[in-house]
């Protein structure tokens, strides 16, 4: 190709090509970086709202359906079960095992991902597929997220309406419980079945803590700035909760099985909640989903904490 061209000119031409190439590569990579940034920030490039949405975050899937974006959802995570419409949608993995190939093959124009899925975010960024990055947070973050998602999908009004419904229901609970007692409460989010081993409790941050406090309970671990913590039986005896609420992420088993689970607590008979028979075992996966159904969780907590004001 360079035959017939003298050596200095070869060098000059070579340098020029190299310069042009490097400028092009630099600008291309900057553009790609910007695209990735845009995608990673969860901002929508200008244009029409997304019409083919993949969500690998079950709580956001619920929100999408609640704000009327359900028909646009084309695939969900392997753990999605609600609303019932998701049953027939393709499943594309979950938090730890997203099926990137499957997601790409569905040609989505928005993928809802969890904040810790950095590899997935980067891969989607490279494919120029916008992402909506979600992370669990406080109760206020849930309604803010619903409004934000509404704006992003061109359904701002619906987003505001759903968020306002949640805020309204929460406000109603607050009003009804106003001035009432605030029993010291232990919120257990996991333990070994039929024993008091490996007890995991809610700490002082996160939507479950917020819901507990809103429902008129005083979290005994409110001062621990963590979403959850492993606690010993000694700490529970020392904290002396007046109510124990225990969350089980399954459908309620037979009453005998529930009774056996509750019986495990009798080992700590000096705990006021155990003594007063105020250990509540709540069953249902929906109780721990930080989506539109948090209202149900708040009402359930309130009934357990204040059966006199909010009967079952």
């Amino acid at each position: 190709m360079w035959v017939g061209v003298s050596r200095p000119r070869v060098a000059l031409a070579g340098r020029l090509v190299a310069l042009l190439l490097s400028t092009w590569v630099a600008s291309a990579s900057m553009a790609a970086a910007q695209d990735t940034k845009v995608a990673a920030r969860g901002l929508q490039p200008p244009g029409t709202p997304p019409q083919r949405i993949v969500s690998v975050v079950p709580s956001v899937t619920e929100t999408l359906f609640a704000i009327g974006a359900g028909p646009r959802v084309i695939a969900v995570s392997s753990f999605d079960t609600y609303p019932p419409e998701v049953a027939h949608l393709p499943k594309v993995g979950a938090l730890f095992d997203p099926d990137v190939e499957r997601i790409l093959s569905l040609r989505p124009d928005l993928v809802v991902v969890y904040g810790s899925q950095t590899d997935l975010i980067a891969q989607l960024g490279r494919a120029n597929i916008p992402t909506y990055v979600y992370r669990h947070g406080s109760l206020a973050d849930i309604t803010a997220g619903i409004r934000d998602l509404g704006v992003r999908l061109g359904l701002a009004g619906e987003g505001r309406r759903v968020a306002a419904t949640i805020d309204g229901a929460m406000g109603e609970i607050r009003t009804r419980l106003k001035g009432g007692t605030r029993p010291r409460t232990l919120l257990v989010i996991g333990r070994e079945p039929q024993s008091l081993r490996s007890i995991n409790a809610s700490g002082g941050i996160g939507f479950l803590h917020d819901l507990l406090e809103l429902a008129g309970g005083a979290n005994v671990f409110a001062d621990v700035k963590r979403e959850s913590l492993l606690v010993s039986t000694e700490t529970i005896l020392a904290k002396a909760p007046e109510v124990i609420i225990e969350l089980h992420y399954s459908e309620p088993p037979i009453p005998e099985a529930i009774a056996r689970e509750r019986k495990a607590w009798t080992a700590l008979s000096a705990v006021p909640a155990v003594k007063a028979g105020r250990v509540y075992l709540l069953y249902g996966g929906e109780l721990v989903v930080p989506g539109p159904r948090v209202v149900v969780t708040a009402q359930t907590f309130a009934r357990a904490l204040h059966p006199d004001i909010m009967p079952w």
């Binding site: 010993s232 039986t233 005896l237 020392a238 080992a267 008979s269 000096a270 003594k275």
Partner: peptide
């Protein structure tokens, strides 16, 4: 024993 927090911390925890 059922009411004695100190004893339960000692003997159970």
């Amino acid at each position: 024993f059922a009411d004695n927090v100190d004893a339960q911390i000692f003997f159970i925890a």
